[in-house]
Design a protein around this nucleic acid. Sequence first.
DNA 1: AATACGATTAACATTCATGTTAATAGTATG
DNA 2: CATACTATTAACATGAATGTTAATCGTATT
Lengths: 103, 103
Amino acid sequence: MNVNRIFAALASLPRRQIIAFLSQTALSTTDLAARFGTSAPAVSRHLSVLQHAGLVSAGRQGQRVMYRLNRDVLLGALAQFASEVDGPLRRAAQPARTPREAI
Amino acid sequence: MNVNRIFAALASLPRRQIIAFLSQTALSTTDLAARFGTSAPAVSRHLSVLQHAGLVSAGRQGQRVMYRLNRDVLLGALAQFASEVDGPLRRAAQPARTPREAI
DNA sequence: AATACGATTAACATTCATGTTAATAGTATG
DNA sequence: CATACTATTAACATGAATGTTAATCGTATT
């Protein structure tokens, strides 16, 4: 899991919006394009970036390619980054403390 | 706390590196510029972005301006984004309600 | 096989981000 | 007060990202 690549993927607002949509249900490229104002090719490239970062998975179903979110990867990356930032000082001071149970 | 602004700030690799440095200790602009290969003005603008996002705080000490990381803001934003992604489906799918400590 | 539909890639233009050097502002010190 | 040091802003150039339309590929349907 490449945290830098994942955060680079999360850099873009449209991609975070795509993730928000995919957090509810699996969607195809045109589904997402319809939910945005944008074109299918634009969505397709965003999905490609997300996929290479490991954040989404693609599965073809007939003509459509359905994308779904890899929650574990996303949450894992957030947790890792959080621990990198939270780590050095706090672990020295308070070994057992985690900021929040979710991450 | 503006999650979009925070993620936009986290988009940049140099800024995440700055955050990594500041997670260890407070540093001045030139301190950070020395740790990078980059110039002071470049660092200064990155720090400005981070500060407007609320991720770092500045405090002048004599000639120097010391920057330190606002861990709570950063970790809070990560937790909020995580809960947004983690939330909808899991709360709907899980028969037992997940306690919402959502921040 | 021919056509239609969905997805991706190519090519292009435009906008945004990053870094550099030069100039300006603020603070301390001789 | 003049000088030195730190930080920030201005102006500029360059590279990357995003979106558009047109073209290509894959799959299904008739």
